[in-house]
């Protein structure tokens, strides 16, 4: 007995210190409380383990009851019911039967007449079975859950409202992105972008073009709703940097959408490079030139142009 008390004490101390430690951890990192779904997801193995454990315990109990039952039958066989009654071993059914009986509280079919109302409606009779206890507890539980929910989210400020949830999600997203970008060196922007002449990159650029740009600028860049890419005139400036910038930020007032949320910088670089290769390809049904004749800067890869910048009226 003494040993038992000592071991309980030791366990209690261990348990307490464990709780204490984890509380400190929480204090240091001060991470936002994860929601139940994440928590459940992160601990899926633990939850499964607990479920298996419960299953094992139930199976074990069932086995014990089965063994007792076998023992009872053996005794019954050997000594007859009188002795058995004296031995007080007359429990009937397995544990499962008992749990089932307790949770349903059903009156057996044979004794149904005892609980039948002496009244019928067009031949329909009614029984006076009690409410299934498990159902009653389920009802209480959902009501308690409801009360707890309202306390958690509204009567106290423990739970975040949906705007706070949103801010948290956005911050988490930004963090994730920043961490990833810090580990990568793929950040291209309008200042650092250069023309790619690698055929594989241009081929990829073409795929992106066909999927996203062709609807407005034509399959061959001849221009439809959007301007023609095959001439030397550019509304928002030619050259890789200007084209990249136009794709990235768009010109919403003229109908060119911003692609920065749909295309990665590297993808915009590839498609911009592909667009530059369209110049001078002379596709059928070209749209009339729009914007200004673009004179490439000296450091650009395209060949030098001699003509002056001249205004072109936009046609239909």
């Amino acid at each position: 007995m003494k040993r038992l008390l000592i071991s309980i004490f030791v366990y209690a101390v261990l348990l307490f210190s464990a709780v204490h430690l984890s509380a400190q951890d929480g204090g240091e990192t001060s991470a936002p409380a994860p929601d139940v779904m994440t928590l459940a997801y992160n601990n899926i193995l633990v939850i499964l383990a607990v479920l298996v454990l419960i299953g094992v315990i139930l199976a074990g109990l069932n086995l014990i009851w089965a063994l007792i039952e076998i023992q009872r039958i053996k005794l019954l066989d050997k000594y007859g019911p009188e002795v058995l009654e004296k031995a007080n071993l007359s429990a009937t059914g397995t544990l499962w039967d008992k749990i089932s009986q307790k949770s349903w509280n059903l009156v057996p079919l044979e004794r149904e007449k005892e609980i039948e109302f002496d009244h019928e409606y067009d031949g329909i009779r009614e029984l006076d079975n009690s409410l299934p206890p498990w159902w009653v507890w389920l009802f209480y539980l959902t009501i308690l859950w409801g009360a707890a929910y309202l306390v958690y989210y509204h009567l106290t400020d423990m739970g975040p409202n949906q705007e706070q949830e949103y801010v948290m999600a956005m911050e988490a997203g930004e963090d994730q992105k920043a961490k990833f970008l810090a580990s990568q060196a793929n950040a291209v922007d309008e200042n650092s972008v250069v023309f790619l002449d690698d055929p594989a990159a241009l081929e990829e650029g073409k795929t992106i073009y066909m999927a996203n740009c062709a609807a407005c600028h034509g399959n061959s860049g001849e221009g439809l709703v959007g301007p023609n890419f095959t001439d030397k005139y550019w509304i928002h400036g030619g050259g890789i940097k200007n084209i990249f910038s136009t794709i990235k930020y768009g010109v919403p007032e003229k109908g060119m959408i911003s692609w920065k949320t749909q295309l990665r910088p590297a993808a915009m670089q590839k498609v911009a490079s592909y667009i530059m290769t369209l110049e001078g390809t002379n596709p059928p049904n070209p749209k009339a030139p729009e914007g200004n004749l673009y004179e490439p800067e000296k450091d650009n890869t395209a060949p030098e142009q001699k003509s002056n910048t001249e205004e072109v009226k936009s046609g239909n």
Binding site: D122, I124, L127, D128, S130, L131
Partner: peptide
């Protein structure tokens, strides 16, 4: 509540449950 007990020719399981079920 009408056609099922009629078709099965069985008494309705629980009058109490009918009451709680309906109002709740």
């Amino acid at each position: 509540y009408y056609f099922l007990p009629k078709a099965a020719n069985r008494p309705v399981y629980s009058y109490k449950l009918s009451i709680i079920d309906f109002w709740a």
